[in-house]
Design a binder for these strands. Sequence first.
RNA 1: GGCGGCUUGGCGGAAUUGGUAGACGCGCUCGACUCAAAAUCGAGUUCCUCUGGAGUGUGGGUUCGAGUCCCACAGCCGCUACCA
Length: 848
Amino acid sequence: MSDERRKPFPFDEFEPRWQQRWDDEKTFRTPNPGDPDFDASKPKFYVLDMFPYPSGAGLHVGHPEGYTATDILGRTKRRQGFNVLHPMGWDSFGLPAEQYAIKTGQHPRVTTEANIDNFRRQLKSLGFGYDWDREVATTDPEYVRWTQWIFLQLYHSYFDGETGVAKPVSELEANGWTPGQIDEVRLAYIHEAPVNWSPSMGTVLANEEVEEWRAKGETVERRPLRQWMLRITKYAQRLIDDLDPLDWPEGIKLLQKNWIGRSEGAEVEFDLEGHPVTVFTTRPDTLFGATYMVLAPEHPLVAEITTAARKETVESYVKACAGKSDMERGDLNKDKSGVFTGAHAVNPVNGEEIPVWIADYVMMGYGTGAIMAVPAHDERDFEFATKFELPIRQVVEPANGADWQGYTDPGTAVNSGFLDSLPTADAKAKIIEWLEENGKGTRRINYKLRDWLFSRQRYWGEPFPLIWNRETGEHAAIPESELPLLQPEMEDFKPTGDPRGPLIKASDWIHYSDEFERETNTMPQWAGSCWYYLRYCDPRNKERFIGREAEQYWGGGSTGMVDLYVGGTEHAVLHLLYARFWHKVLFDLGHLSTGEPFQKLVNQGLILGEDGQKMSKSRGNVVNPDDIVREHGADALRLYEMFMGPLTDTKPWQMKGVEGVSRFLARVWRVAMAQDHAGEWRMSDKVRDVPCGDKALLKVVHETVKKVTEDIAKMSFNTAISQMMVCTNAFTQAEVVPRREFTLLLSVLNPFAPHLSEELNRRIGNEDQLATQPWPDHDESALVESEVELVVQVNGKLRDRITVAKDAPKEDIEAAARASAKVREHTDGKTVRKVIVVPGRLVNIVAN
RNA sequence: GGCGGCUUGGCGGAAUUGGUAGACGCGCUCGACUCAAAAUCGAGUUCCUCUGGAGUGUGGGUUCGAGUCCCACAGCCGCUACCA
């Protein structure tokens, strides 16, 4: 029994054949402005997938979910007359390739290229209509050139607070600013920051990686290191405000807003043993209720103000905190800790002396690293005060008679001098006014968002195009003509334990000149993924990161450049925030004409394993797309992933479901094809070039064209497919298959199952590829019926159905309904109170 | 703890946005074809105490009419975590 006998239709023969043809003929190539075949009269549609990290494991079934959705949209829009930009590429820097290199000595470029080849093969085997001429990899030297160039734009810019936009620092130089002053405002700046340093691995780790590596036995400590930072905080307000006009899921917008974390309040200056100390509070109205102050353990004043008697206790507490990661500090959530410094601060509003503590529930990185504690009206302060028996003083009267202890909602000010009896909002305004008049504080808006720690101690990343003066310790940019600056060739990637990273070993490379040496840090993986959607627009441009004309065309006409961006929620915060930030900087500097990168965002739902659990190697529930393509074909995989349920839902994989859609495709095949005695597929003699005589069949075909068109626009692919199944069932039962009508079905099936639809289209004698044919319109006249069936309810319960003329007047419908014997059974002996007639739908008779 | 999402047959999911609940698919049952099986085709399939009744997580409300709107509660799943 050969394999071929078991295939319900010969997808294994025709799928690779069509893929080859699309490749050879460049069917899905998209001309750019300036190309001879570019048609400027067509509107543009830029549909983008989140490009994958080409891991050694290959494609996961989660990838084709979003990719098929965008492919359906792209293919449809193309046939609807749009210039469709639908590209693919590789987010190819990243830690796994480097780790693998450390283990095996194989250069990361080698493994990365092999992985990319595998991913490309897999994607091509699914028949996606990408313009492969626009493929980019973030590791391509030509791509690295422009990533570094964009970094230099940031390096050479500052944020002008007056106008709220980025400007070149050359303007400051012209105004006589010193290099030192300019470094204070650059968008890319050097900063000594505490990071998670792993001595055993010789690299810094992101906060979220710390636990994972500790569990594997690696050591991690907090250590201040010289790091490159990007001043994203300057864009906090714009990053919030500009979310508004974007067509993104509300949940994702909220996630971004919460991450940026704007809060309004005031800064208040206390006198701490002769030092002015500023605290930030969102509740300045509770200033009279401050009964103690807390400094973060890392606060610079701690050592200075601690009294001799408390010195030992304080020092050991500070040391204990220094060893903890942010995560661990968070874990101790429930149990507050802290120590008294022995010092006191003076409350500016009433001259009261309050004790000053240090505690790790106050973070150095947010606000000023110091707080005034109002235990009566702040949960954390309340908990702390209770534990350490500090005084708790009521200054807000709850609005609803609730207990004032730990009451944090707005109310009325009490025990607060000139604020008494004011509602919270008014009290806030009044105290800020007082603070400003007396020079003791000011209105202030704070953001949770921190500046972006942009340097990594790794080999497989973009080197910074910067050099350091050995004598003066000043940094400078290398000229653009020296880009791209690639990593030196190295044999040994092992970490040295030197916090400057593995590039420190390449002494020839580091030596720039007698005067200067190179920066040895590299950029994070985010750098490449921050702007790849720009490069796709003009991927081979040698002069610019994106040509002016291409930028204007592909970004034109909307707030955000990309019309539709599809990907997973895991990138809801960081990737999207970083890309928006870079986009805005480039916009400010005049390189882009849109203010936002992504107009519409859709998050595909997670595909779970057959057991309803997240797919993972350890659970053994991972589905490999290659297996599905081999068994059932690419069209079946595409169709199944779209048929599982709504794109945005989380849903479990079901192998039986794949068989179901495969059966559907086989049914479509057999509508037009039959096997002869030799087992060869031949066109069925049911297919005829005749007008469709079957009204019901004609109707379902046109309903299908209409519904599929509408459902694609709504991205409701599962219902589009079920409609095509209904249509196919009608064809299966038909005596004659009119070629024109069957072609219509193939035409709308084409974006979903491109191989099968093209193959059948050709086999039934149509010459042109469906992919190049205009999208069909449905014929409204095929849909109209002269009669409609209505439901008759009595008191909301279904009792009968009646058939009436489509445009029958309400009175006639009511009369017909009341004439029904079944209705009478339920109304006899009752009084009809009301009759509701919804034409085309139902009649409801209210009787009692 | 905070924020967000979800909850409809044995299973995945439909429901014109307030108007026939369960489209379509899976599974299952029966029939045709077959020596037989697979495949295929056809019929059926929410539940029950079945000429009737109940039913969209639970309890209430609005309405002629609620899966859909409002209030309260419960259960799952994500993300986040002392942000003053």
